[in-house]
Lab assay of single mutants.
Amino acid sequence: MSIQHFRVALIPFFAAFCLPVFAHPETLVKVKDAEDQLGARVGYIELDLNSGKILESFRPEERFPMMSTFKVLLCGAVLSRVDAGQEQLGRRIHYSQNDLVEYSPVTEKHLTDGMTVRELCSAAITMSDNTAANLLLTTIGGPKELTAFLHNMGDHVTRLDRWEPELNEAIPNDERDTTMPAAMATTLRKLLTGELLTLASRQQLIDWMEADKVAGPLLRSALPAGWFIADKSGAGERGSRGIIAALGPDGKPSRIVVIYTTGSQATMDERNRQIAEIGASLIKHW
């Protein structure tokens, strides 16, 4: 067993022997301040990774656009098919120029040779490549099948209805392509620590998230040296922004954090800054 596999296998073990965790309302004060600064709703939840206990939450059962955070769930569904012998990570998928959609920095470079399922998941999570996500959605049967996968996990809230990039439209009061912070946090925890996926697939999923290259201005910008984070960000229309993450000190994750916002007129930089400040408060009061 590799060191990384050992780390993920012992996530519940280490967490069980940690000192009790206590909620700190100071972080919620910052979440509410972010709402004021952005002029928009902000949803927040913080779960203990081992027990699933909610440590703090704000608007945990209000719907927010998922945006690209759905790509972690998508690759979880792909990995479940791999575990069941219905898919192979090494299978190569070929596609054409007509398949390319807006923001496809990886797939646009491989029109000639195609990409493997493993490479597509890596591109979808680490670079948020939209064509990679659409190609992977095709392998599982489309958005409705991802929703069905989530329902089978016990998540009857999260739903995907459309493809990239239309799913980022974020129309107010439109339930399409949305989740709730509580539902997303619980589902992410199941994917990373539950028995739904094999140990190898859980490790692969967290490795992809740990290698995320496009979430630097968010929670990662607030992390002290030595902290662990595996995350996936999302951005959408109407001032929408979000991030889902597993993080913790001492090089291992111990909490799940989900943050979503929508309806702001603020710039992307300002949305990023507010999420980073929430992260800084979380870490300060850990």
Rank of each mutant, 00 (worst) to 15 (best):
R92S: 10
A77W: 06
D250R: 13
A16Y: 08
T267F: 07
V8E: 10
R92P: 08
Y103S: 05
I3G: 05
F6Y: 10
M153T: 12
V258N: 02
D99S: 10
W286F: 05
D212Q: 07
E169D: 13
L120E: 01
L28K: 09
K30S: 10
K213F: 10
V78I: 09
L55P: 02
D207K: 12
D207F: 10
W227C: 02
R7V: 08
E237F: 09
G154D: 08
L55Y: 12
Y95H: 05
L10T: 14
D269V: 13
N50Y: 13
K232P: 00
G154F: 04
D174S: 07
E26V: 10
G226Q: 09
G234I: 00
L247K: 00
E166A: 11
Q86R: 12
R81C: 05
N152L: 11
A245F: 03
L135W: 02
F70H: 07
M209I: 02
A200R: 13
K213I: 11
G90S: 13
S57V: 10
R63S: 08
M127I: 09
I275L: 10
G39K: 15
W227M: 03
I206N: 08
Y103G: 06
P181K: 00
G263H: 07
L47T: 09
S122C: 08
R118I: 10
I171Y: 14
E119K: 06
L192E: 02
V101A: 11
R273Q: 10
L137W: 04
A170I: 09
A276K: 12
T187V: 08
M268W: 09
H110G: 08
G226A: 09
L188T: 09
Q86S: 15
G248M: 01
D212V: 04
T147H: 07
R59I: 02
V257W: 02
M153R: 07
Q88Y: 13
D99M: 12
E277T: 13
R91D: 05
E61D: 14
K144R: 14
N168G: 11
T198S: 13
P12G: 11
A23R: 05
E35L: 02
T261Y: 06
M67P: 00
E195Y: 07
D269M: 11
E35T: 03
T147Y: 04
F17E: 04
Q97I: 13
A183K: 08
L100R: 05
R41Y: 10
P165G: 06
G236Y: 01
M67T: 11
Q37H: 13
G226D: 11
V42R: 00
V106Y: 08
E35G: 05
V82W: 07
F228M: 10
R118M: 10
M1G: 00
V42S: 03
L49Q: 05
I229S: 03
T267H: 11
G248L: 00
M268S: 08
D83H: 04
G43D: 00
P25N: 09
G234Y: 02
D177T: 01
I278F: 04
D155A: 01
A124S: 11
T267P: 14
L197R: 05
L38R: 06
P65Q: 03
S68D: 00
A16H: 14
R91C: 04
L47S: 06
Q203E: 15
T139I: 13
I11L: 08
M268C: 05
W208S: 03
G43I: 00
A170C: 13
L19S: 15
R59V: 01
W208M: 08
T131W: 02
I140W: 03
